[in-house]
């Protein structure tokens, strides 16, 4: 566990860079985390991030691909286009949640 200065605030992160305290997250932090991954957040990105946020608060886990499709109404193709090379991992990191622990 270490600390990191980002978007004018201090956040606790684990070795892989995932936030360990969601209370320290805000939309500016998200934008800065995204920038580090080479992603400029748009409205389409926020639709995904907001769904992860809602779903995590309800279920306590980061939603998998199928839940993104069926419940979030987000297409697989779009998710890969918005967050290339590891869509859910990257989206979860930017949303300030833990690395997904599911196989699918």
């Amino acid at each position: 566990m270490s600390q990191k200065q980002i978007a004018g605030t201090t956040v606790d992160v684990n070795v892989e860079g995932y936030l360990t305290n969601h209370a320290q997250w805000n939309r500016d932090v998200a934008a800065a985390l995204a920038k580090e991954l080479g992603i400029e957040l748009t409205e389409a990105h926020w639709k995904v991030l907001d769904f992860i946020d809602r779903d995590f608060k309800e279920k306590g886990v980061v939603p998998g691909m199928r839940r993104m499709n069926k419940v979030g109404g987000i297409l697989t193709k779009d998710l890969y286009a918005l967050f290339p090379d590891g869509p859910i991992k990257k989206a979860a990191l930017i949303a300030g949640y833990p690395k997904p622990a599911s196989c699918v």
Binding site: M65, R66, R67, L75, T76, K77, Y80, V104
Partner: peptide, 15 residues
């Protein structure tokens, strides 16, 4: 949330 085979193929293909 492991999809049926046809849906799983679609997911992999779209990915």
């Amino acid at each position: 949330d492991i999809p049926p085979v046809p849906e799983f193929l679609e997911m992999i293909h779209d990915a």
